[in-house]
Design a protein around this nucleic acid. Structure first.
Length: 834
RNA sequence: GCGGAGGUGGCGAAAUUGGCAGACGCACUAGCUUGAGGUGCUAGCGCCGCAAGGCAUAGGGGUUCAAGUCCCCUCCUCCGCACCA
């Protein structure tokens, strides 16, 4: 019989599609241990791409394996379905966003089913539907109540392409995360923010415990949070009532401060500029320069420039007057927007001071013997303070705490911590997102929409032009509303929420997807959480993955869940590339999954995605490789179906068929069973540990080669039907995580019933797996001379004499003296000669 | 510049604890089969060499009986961060 995936796959797909219970997770009362495996939900663009295929093939293999290992598996899927492409499609093709999106979802769901992915579709979550976004609004209001959602005016990132604001996390190299070629602008706007900074320390400290996450992601998150311990010190501006507070991590060097530098956007700069129009012009130029540099993501590249204000400030530690400068390299939105400049001990300050001829005053010296007294010197631990008043002679690290305490005691400073992390701006001036449930009343001011009035529905009839502000603001029926407090005329908030809000908690909704009285039932969430294995692309390392960690902590503090982190283990799979480059439309190197499936079948396509490289590495898509997998599956099919009738008739369904029949086992059968059990052991190990599916599949291929080589023996009766049963049964089970359609087909042909992935994973018999003969390499001076074949339990002496008996060994030993002989039991012999 | 991951045949890769480098697959070569057309099977396939043998895991050095694996130096590729005081 010929292997025809185009016949087998649709047939089983129809069976599976008709049975919603097939992949359903059991409820929380199931007596089994739970296992929550999750792949990141896709944006429904309408077409699955190879990155998805790879991501889902990994997750599906794991889900099926864990089912076979006896776990209660939760393996859901959903749609991150709000977002701009739907609006763009509406503008371009005049299709309503909802219609376009739901159409895409339907198409992609078909593609996923065609791939045979084992999702529990009863738990499907579609974020753009009111039954989901209602809970976004509900959670928003809970956060509003707790002061975690607030409105403020600030400088925000504006993507002209999206015509909306972006959060800091969504700006990549100064460009929009969705539009690589679009430079993000800076604008002043009033926006809604989530107070993620409140959880900065917990988010940072939690990283240490995420030992199931890739180090790379942990490092990126640490960098992003950017915690910096230091101190604030307040300087009085001479002759005015003003003060300047600086932030420094090196308060110990304050006796070496020779100027104070403030950002051009610092409030005092404005003050100074007001009295001096030349100065104001210089300040304006710097502001413009910083803005442009930020937009070009070249803040680090601008040349340091400054302008002296002519004003002075008093160093509260020693009473010295230092000049106040405005520096183009000082950022208004980090720390206090002002620094003290210590040229002797900071590289940047040194550069600046040298350029403008400012005083350089050494206050730290190395306390170890060194000739290198060059400045700037930034040593801390092996150093000592000099010319620093009462702190002279102290170690800098020690002095830092003391000096901050001193500043605090005297009212001009304190120890403090700053973060690079900023609050999460969530307002979007777009239509296709969750409406922010807030109403503005002339009388009562800002009012939250009462919970019982949720959801605030998106109006269906809307004209999206892509121009001029938030589309919702042009829908009077939406905007005009009665104030929930005074019932007077009021207006709705017309911005919608960032779509990253949707994906911050969607995985909780899977645990109770149809709940219409709460986002989910806490009992259910607490049973399933945390996620045991989360799988997705590394591109979300600081976007989705930091937001969802934050959201988990917020929901915990709202009493909804108990876990501190969403996922115990995270796996970031590599990219799928073609001809050395990431697949993309612009490069024209896209390979369509549908085309692959049509040509080779879903099984071969999925299996290739797992075989071609370890899952964490980039994978070069080679169609010839898919053809190779397809040939392999065809061989499995041909051989299994050849013996299946006899095996099925034999009707041996027990796990350990060989138990009573060892005596009847032929040496040839024994050999095959040995290989089988070695393969089971190898795959089981790789599955539980390193996830190297490529080597798993390679070892199944090796087994298959051995079975092929035994065909004559099976035909001739040298390998009995009992043994055949054992071999083909296990082979089929081992293929189930990788090639679900084929293994299901073979499972039934072998006389079994029910889903193959609910059968038990085979257990390796270590006794059977043992070799009775082993090969021992014989080295002479570390170089391979020969290999001897000996009984597995051969004595050291027997192996040594076998080694000496080898002609090639003897010839290399001739005329030499044996200095030493290394024998590693079961591994090798190395004869060292002179 | 800082941090991380990598560099092994023509290609994707394997070598899990320092112990036969290149499993498995692709491509290629030869033969058989098939007969129309990405068929199946058998054998070969790191490099040099007729062979014996030698040389090979980015390059150089070291430790060891033994190094892809451990240590030191250098080079290259990819990713992240980068005036954050």
């Amino acid at each position: 019989m010929r292997y025809t995936p185009s016949e087998i796959e649709p047939r089983w797909q129809a069976v599976w599609d008709a049975d919603a219970s097939l992949y359903a997770a059991e409820d929380v009362t199931a007596g089994k241990p739970k296992y929550y495996v999750l792949e990141m939900l896709p944006y429904p663009s309408g077409q699955l791409h190879m990155g998805h295929v790879r991501n889902y093939s990994i997750g599906d293999a794991l889900a099926r394996y864990q089912w076979m290992r006896g776990f209660n598996v939760l393996h859901p899927m959903g749609w991150d379905s709000f977002g701009l492409p739907a609006e763009n499609a509406a503008i371009k093709n005049n299709i309503p966003p909802r219609e376009w999106t739901l159409g895409n979802i339907a198409e992609m769901r078909v593609q996923m089913r065609r791939m045979g992915l084992s999702y529990d579709w009863q738990r499907e979550v579609t974020t753009c539907l009111p039954d989901y976004y209602k809970w976004n609004q509900w959670l928003f209001l809970k956060m509003y109540e707790k002061g975690l959602a607030y409105r403020k005016q600030s400088k925000v990132n504006w993507c002209p392409q999206c015509a909306t604001v972006l959060a800091n996390e969504q700006v990549v190299n100064g460009r929009c995360w969705r539009h690589e070629d679009t430079i993000v602008e800076q604008r002043d706007l009033t926006q809604w923010f989530f107070r993620i900074t409140k959880y900065a320390d917990e988010l940072l400290d939690g990283i240490d415990k995420l030992d199931g996450w890739p180090e790379k992601v942990r490092t990126m998150q640490r960098n992003w949070i950017g915690r910096s311990e230091g101190a604030e010190v307040t300087f009085h501006v001479t002759g005015t009532g003003h003060t300047i507070t600086v932030f420094t991590t090196r308060i110990d060097t304050i006796f070496g401060a020779t100027s104070v530098q403030i950002a051009p956007e610092h409030p005092l700069a404005k003050e100074f500029g007001a009295a001096d129009s030349t100065l104001q012009q210089q300040i304006d130029a710097m502001i413009e320069q910083q803005k442009l540099a930020k937009e070009a993501d070249a803040l680090g590249a601008i040349e340091k420039q400054g302008v002296a204000t002519g004003k002075f400030a008093t160093n509260p530690f020693n009473g010295e007057q230092v000049p106040i400068w405005i520096g183009n390299y000082i950022l208004a939105d980090y720390g206090t927007g002002a620094i003290m400049s210590v040229p002797a001990h900071d590289e940047r300050d040194f550069e600046f001071a040298t350029k403008y001829g400012l005083e350089i005053k050494r206050v730290v010296a190395p306390n170890v013997d060194t000739d290198d007294l060059a400045l700037p010197y930034s040593g801390e631990d092996e150093a000592v303070l000099i010319d620093s008043g009462d702190w002279s002679g102290k170690n800098p690290l020690e002095a830092q705490g003391e000096m901050a305490a001193y500043a605090e005691a005297n009212g001009f400073g304190k120890a403090t911590v700053t973060y690079r992390l900023k609050d999460w701006g969530v307002s979007r001036q777009r239509y296709w997102g969750t409406p922010i449930p807030i109403v503005y009343c002339d009388e009562c001011g800002m009012q939250p929409v009462p919970l019982e009035q949720l959801p605030v529905l998106l109006p269906e009839k809307i004209d999206i032009s892509g121009e001029g502000g938030s589309p919702l603001s042009r829908v009077p029926e939406f905007v005009n509303v009665k104030c929930p407090t005074c019932n007077g005329n009021a207006k709705r908030e017309t911005d919608t929420m960032d779509t990253f809000v949707d994906s911050s908690w969607y995985f909780y909704r899977y645990t109770d997807a149809k709940n219409d009285s709460a986002p989910f039932d806490s009992v259910k969430a607490n049973y399933w959480f945390p996620i045991d294995q989360y799988i997705g692309g590394v591109e979300h390392a600081i976007l989705h993955l930091i937001y969802s960690r934050y959201w988990t902590k917020v929901m915990r503090d709202l009493g909804l869940i108990k876990n501190d982190e969403p996922a115990t283990r995270l796996f970031t799979q590599g990219m799928v590339i073609k001809n050395g480059a990431k697949m993309s439309k612009s490069k024209g190197n896209i390979v369509s999954p549908d085309e692959m499936i049509a040509k080779y079948g879903a099984d071969a396509t999925r299996m290739y995605a797992l075989f071609a490289a370890p899952p964490d590495r980039d994978l070069e898509w080679q169609e010839d490789g898919v053809a190779g997998i397809s040939r392999f599956l065809a061989r499995v099919y041909r051989l299994t179906t050849k013996y299946a009738p006899a095996i099925a008739a034999h009707e041996r369904r027990e796990k350990k068929t060989h138990a009573g029949s060892f005596a009847a086992l032929t040496p040839e059968g024994m050999k095959l069973l040995r290989k089988l059990n070695q393969t089971i052991a190898k795959i089981t190990l790789d599955f539980s540990g390193r996830w190297h599916f490529n080597t798993c599949i390679a070892s199944v291929m090796t087994l298959m080669n051995e079975i092929s080589a035994s065909e004559v023996l099976m035909d001739g009766g040298a390998i009995a039907v009992e043994t055949q049963t054992e071999v083909f049964r296990a082979l089929t089970l081992m293929l189930a995580p990788f090639a679900p359609f084929l293994s299901q087909e073979l499972w039934v042909l072998l006389g079994n019933e029910g889903p193959v992935f609910r059968a038990s994973w085979p257990v390796a018999d270590t006794e059977l797996a043992k070799e009775d003969e082993i090969e021992i390499p014989i080295q002479v001076n570390g170089k391979l001379a020969s290999v001897v074949r000996v009984a597995a339990d051969a004595s050291e002496d027997a192996i040594k004499s076998a080694a000496h008996a080898e002609e090639k060994v003897a010839s290399r030993l001739a005329g030499k003296t044996i200095v030493k002989l290394i024998y590693v039991p079961g591994k090798l012999v190395n004869i060292v000669v002179k």
